[in-house]
């Protein structure tokens, strides 16, 4: 059996949390937005392109989570060194930051996107305003992403 240092194992948990929770939020949000878009397209075929745009917006949270997970893996697990437990805990903090922020932001954005799709199919002029409202929920994921990066830089993972 391969011996894994405690710090490395903790970093693996951090990477898992980053992509897992962010992906969960993004998936749920995208599912809600997609269900609304399918309904809109069923009534108006011209809604396809706009439906895709709204459905794609909650994808970003999964991308942030994926990026943080990759960074954690590259600079800790894949570096091939035994990692101290303290660095492993920093990785968990970074993973939790983007994971939970992505979870809330993704679901919120999905709900807004679905509502915006309904508004646009009812009144075409709502497209730009719908995009703005939907983009607002992105900020929480950006906060989580920034904090995760800062934790990794000043916590010694990316240093």
């Amino acid at each position: 059996m391969v011996e894994i240092a405690l710090g490395t194992a903790l970093a693996a948990i951090g990477a898992g949390m980053a992509v897992g929770f962010a992906g969960l939020g993004s998936g749920l949000g995208q599912g809600i937005a997609a269900a609304g878009s399918v309904g809109a397209v069923a009534e108006d075929e011209d809604m396809f392109a706009r439906g895709i745009i709204f459905t794609a917006l909650p994808e970003t949270q999964a991308i942030y989570g994926f990026l943080i997970a990759i960074l954690i893996m590259v600079f800790t697990i894949m570096a091939g060194k035994a990692l101290p437990a303290s660095l492993g805990l920093v990785a968990i903090g970074a993973g939790a930051a983007i994971g939970f922020a992505g979870l809330g932001s993704g679901m919120g954005q999905g709900i807004t996107a679905s509502s915006a799709v309904g508004a646009v199919v009812e009144n075409e002029d709502m497209f730009a305003r719908g995009i703005i409202f939907t983009a607002l929920s992105e900020t929480q994921a950006i906060y989580g992403f920034l904090i995760a990066i800062l934790l990794m830089v000043f916590g010694g993972i990316l240093g």
Binding site: A33, A35, G36, S37, G39, A40, S114, G118
Partner: peptide
């Protein structure tokens, strides 16, 4: 967090259709 969101989920498709109408 997920529970309230899941209760909205079944309504997103029908609501988009009726809002189009």
């Amino acid at each position: 967090t997920i529970r309230p969101v899941l209760s909205m989920f079944p309504y997103t498709y029908p609501n988009a259709r009726v809002r189009a109408r």
